[in-house]
Amino acid sequence: MTYDATGRLLLTPVDKEGPERARRLLRLDLGRRPEAAFDLFADRLAEVAGAPFAGVNFIDGDRQFFAGLHTPDGVRPSAASRSVARDHGYCPHVVARRKALVLDDVRDYPRFAGNPVVDETGTRSYLGAPLLDDRTGLALGTVCVVDTEPRLWGRSGLATIKAMAGELMHIVRGRGDPTGKFSRAHPS
């Protein structure tokens, strides 16, 4: 957990499902390397949202890994530079909340304004939705878009990011356990 300088404001949410999520991601072979299909998905997400950055992010107990990434210059970072600490960015909040997160201007929210990505990458606005595994009930990660300028994402942005998360989960559902033998009663 990361707290602000006063020690009162929790900046990174507690993640009780991290170990279980890490096992599920391992079983699905997700979040360990970049994947062309996820890069292409991130490209399309950036185009649909009109955002300079987009990602397909899987979060285990300790870190985040962008298996799909779109950047404004089109350069795909190496696998090593796609992994970030769990306390960087806003995706861990989406996973903990299990709901989409809309930040038109991150500086308007004390909990989020001090996040390292604000200064390191110039993030000013964020829109993300969880990738919910219907077999286990876990939030495996997120799809997200980021802008370096404040953005009014609005209801259409929220609807778009949720729809894109659902679309990506159709791709993920076919991985790992095609028999469907793993269910909520027997999380993997």
Rank of each mutant, 00 (worst) to 15 (best):
A67V: 05
L101K: 03
G68Y: 14
P19A: 14
K99P: 03
S78I: 07
D62Q: 15
S83L: 10
H93A: 07
R23E: 12
R24F: 06
V84L: 08
V14F: 09
F41Q: 03
G18I: 06
A37D: 09
A96P: 12
D105M: 15
G89I: 08
A100H: 12
P34E: 00
F65N: 13
D73H: 08
F38K: 00
K99W: 01
H88D: 12
A85T: 00
R24V: 13
A100W: 05
G89E: 07
C91N: 10
V94W: 08
D104Q: 14
Y90W: 05
P52Y: 12
F65I: 13
R32W: 12
R21P: 13
A49W: 03
V95G: 08
L26G: 13
G50Y: 06
L103R: 09
P72H: 02
T71A: 04
H70A: 12
P19H: 10
F53V: 15
L25G: 14
A22S: 15
R23W: 01
H70F: 00
F66K: 11
P52L: 13
S83F: 07
L101D: 06
E17W: 11
F38W: 04
L69I: 05
L28P: 05
A79Q: 09
K16E: 15
E20W: 15
D105P: 15
A80G: 05
R24C: 10
L28A: 05
P72R: 08
F66R: 08
D73L: 07
E35T: 02
D60I: 06
Y90T: 02
R27F: 03
R97Y: 07
A96H: 07
V94N: 11
E20L: 15
S81P: 00
D62W: 13
P19G: 11
V106C: 07
A22W: 01
G68I: 13
G74E: 00
D105G: 14
F53C: 09
A22I: 12
D39I: 01
L25M: 07
A42R: 01
A49M: 10
V95P: 12
D15N: 14
V56N: 04
S81C: 03
A51P: 13
E35R: 02
G89W: 10
L28F: 02
R98T: 09
D39H: 04
F41H: 03
R63A: 13
D105W: 15
R63F: 14
V102Y: 09
D43Q: 03
V75H: 02
P77I: 00
A54V: 07
P19R: 14
K99H: 04
I59Q: 00
G18R: 07
R63S: 15
V48D: 14
